[in-house]
């Protein structure tokens, strides 16, 4: 799974900490998701979608390994 959360976050001028607070997780979790070390649950993906006002498919993409 690949994602462009870092880009989406930059568009909204949000720090990792700001985004973490908005969706109720820790900053380290956002960092792990951005680095593709952790794949979030559907609930978390939908919360991100709400913050970015975009469908989940726009910032999460399946990679060739998936």
């Amino acid at each position: 799974m690949e994602n462009t959360i870092k880009v989406e976050r930059a568009i909204l001028s949000l720090t990792q900490d700001d985004l973490a607070k908005k969706i109720g997780v820790s900053r380290q979790t956002i960092n792990s998701i951005e680095a593709n070390r952790y794949v979030p649950s559907t609930v978390l993906a939908l919360k991100l979608s709400e913050v970015f006002s975009k469908p989940v498919n726009d910032f999460f993409k399946l990679s060739q390994d998936d």
Partner: peptide, 9 residues
Amino acid sequence: KEEDEMTIS
């Protein structure tokens, strides 16, 4: 202190 789905996993 900061429990979320990642720490649960």
